[in-house]
Design a protein around this nucleic acid. Structure first.
Length: 576
DNA sequence: ATAGGGTTAG
């Protein structure tokens, strides 16, 4: 009688509270055989993972009259499915310690957990048990092994397991295909793909995205045309392929042609516009996107931050917090937001952001720490920046560049140059941003020879100096009084020099009071950046230094004319 | 039970 009542209860969706009551009944009446049903129901009906739930289930399992393998298997599978990989692994170990024989789904879930955490040691341990318990004939377990070694990049082992499988399903094929594609081994992948007896949409999608990631849109497109049925992931793989190779027009064509656009499509498209600097189009899409989630907010915030519009990045961030949907920012949001604070030079805001991160329990990974290095360096706390730099698990080119630039803008040129050498010793290849930092450092020290040498060394790394790099060299040469050399360098530029380059030359001419070159530089500045009055003042000062008062007067009038031409109230609008 | 598509730092 009570058994049927309990069974009825257990087949309902149970809350944690109801489960505790049922559990009490189970204990009182020693219906231990119902415990697996209880655990199973609890996990199946739960809305998701929570710490309380885990603790409760574990307490049932630990105090169960007889340890039972089925319940442990349910728990491990549940944890593995809900991304709690570490917990899944430790539950697996605990079950082992109880002397229980694992089920096939406990083993495959444990393998999945090891694969996702890239736990090679744990994975091999479970693998050893697979043979011991005689799961060599189980497709699911064997497929999980193929998946494990594929994710770890150990393709020889993956292939061996795959070859020895007594039977395979399409998931087994997809798992090994995934492994070769991850290693960018397109030849192997192509051969394998052609051998798959019954390709499903995932096989096709994996292959398409493999080609797309390798930049081979021709083959990707061919497969896309050939495939029997497409889902939104197929379209998205093509879309992000075009985005990655910078073909935003084709990406947009695809976006407009898609039968159904998913959240992913919108975000990929916004990211595409962001990368090619078309902020307006990105913004337009974002506004058209009806209900926004964390990832679409992240994409738009990143778009503004990466395109030098920090204020708008912060506005979107505020909009996200106050939208009423209770979207919680994650480490990706904060990476962009910290970058925005840095661009604004706002350490106060930055500190507030750091506090929010602590409150949310967001751990500082290397990505975030690098953003913080930049923030602290730009705001003058160079020691804090170096502390963060030292705390990095792995120092990559981005981290080094941030730190080198940090030293450079804080006038610590010697430290910047030293760090650059340290980076070379660590066999990390510099890129163009690294050289921005290094050249900034040289231009602060006035070490012309060394600066010039490092500028010329860029090509040894396969780097082409940008207009900004030329600008820094002009600044370095100019400040040191080599005005002719600076002017000649501009003349050799393969691209159109922008106002900043001529501005650096003009500034140097003011420092050394050179009228002849100063006039040339000023003429270009007027033309390239007609809205700014600063250039006229500089030239006027140069004229004054040599007593050409008529020209001085003419320049001053030009400055005043500009000032009065401004729309009244403009600066008020700008400051609100 | 096993698989695929999106957002982050200089």
């Amino acid at each position: 009688m009570i058994v049927s009542e309990l069974k009825f209860l257990l087949n309902q969706r149970l809350t944690l509270k109801q489960a505790r009551q049922t559990h009490a009944a189970v204990l009182v009446h020693k219906f231990h055989h119902l415990q697996p049903l209880l655990v199973h129901q609890l996990l199946v009906s739960s809305r998701g993972y929570s710490f309380d739930l885990l603790q409760y289930v574990k307490s049932i399992l630990r105090h169960a009259g007889s340890p039972d393998s089925f319940s442990w298997g349910c728990l491990i599978r549940f944890l593995s499915q809900h991304g709690q990989f570490r917990e899944a692994c430790s539950a697996y170990c605990e079950m082992q310690a109880l002397g229980l024989c694992p089920s096939t789904f406990a083993v495959s879930s444990a393998l999945r957990a090891c694969a996702r955490t890239e736990d090679i040691v744990g994975g091999r341990l479970v693998h050893a048990q697979v043979n011991k318990y005689g799961f060599s004939g189980c497709v699911y377990v064997q497929t999980a092994l193929v998946d494990l070694y594929s994710r770890l990049g150990e393709m020889q082992t993956a292939q061996k397991v795959f070859d020895e499988m007594p039977e395979r399903n399409v998931v087994s094929w997809n798992s090994i295909l995934f492994g070769y594609l991850r290693l960018r081994n397109l030849d192997m992948a192509r051969n394998l793909f052609s051998e798959i007896p019954e390709k499903d949409v995932i096989s096709w999608n994996s292959m398409i995205s493999g080609y797309a990631k390798a930049g081979d849109m021709k083959h990707a497109g061919e497969l896309f045309q050939q495939m029997p049925e497409r889902n939104s992931a197929s379209w998205n793989a093509m879309l992000s392929g075009y985005v990655d190779c910078g073909n935003i027009e084709l990406a947009r064509e695809l976006f407009d042609a898609m039968p159904q656009r998913s959240e992913v499509s919108w975000i990929a498209m916004i990211g595409g516009y962001s990368k090619c600097g078309d902020v307006e189009s990105a913004c337009l899409l974002f506004d058209q996107l009806g209900k926004k989630n964390l990832l679409s907010y992240n994409a738009m915030i990143a778009c503004y931050a990466q395109n030098g519009r920090p204020t708008e990045a912060l506005q979107i961030f505020n909009g996200m917090i106050e939208c009423g949907l209770e979207i919680v920012p994650d480490k990706i949001t904060f990476s962009s937001i910290i970058s925005a604070c840095s661009q604004l030079g706002d350490l106060k805001l930055g500190s507030w952001i750091e506090l929010q991160m602590e409150k949310l329990g967001i751990e500082k990974d290397d990505h975030l720490a690098t953003a913080l290095i930049d923030l602290h360096a730009k705001c003058g706390s160079i020691h804090k920046a170096y502390e963060l730099f030292n705390s990095l698990k792995k120092k990559d080119v981005v981290a080094y560049s941030a730190m080198i630039l940090g030293y450079a803008v804080n006038g610590k040129a010697v430290d910047a140059i030293q760090l650059f050498e340290e980076m070379a010793d660590a066999h990390i290849c510099p890129n163009s941003v690294t050289f921005t930092g290094l050249l900034t450092a040289y231009s602060h020290t006035g070490l012309v020879e060394e600066g010039y040498r490092s500028f010329n060394s860029m090509k040894n790394y396969g780097l082409v100096p940008s207009a900004d790099h030329y600008g820094m060299m002009v600044d370095l040469l100019g400040r040191a009084g080599h005005l002719e050399d600076a002017y000649n360098l501009i003349k050799t530029m393969p691209m159109q020099p922008h106002a900043g380059v001529w501005g650096a030359l003009l500034l140097a001419c003011r420092l050394h009071n050179n009228v002849e070159i100063g006039e040339i530089a000023a003429r270009h500045c007027f033309k390239l950046d007609p809205d700014r009055a600063g250039y006229q003042s500089l030239l006027s000062n140069i004229y004054a230094s040599v007593g050409r008062w008529t020209d001085v007067k003419q320049m001053r009038e030009a400055v005043e004319e500009k000032a009065s031409a401004k729309i009244p109230g403009y600066s008020w609008v700008e400051s609100t």
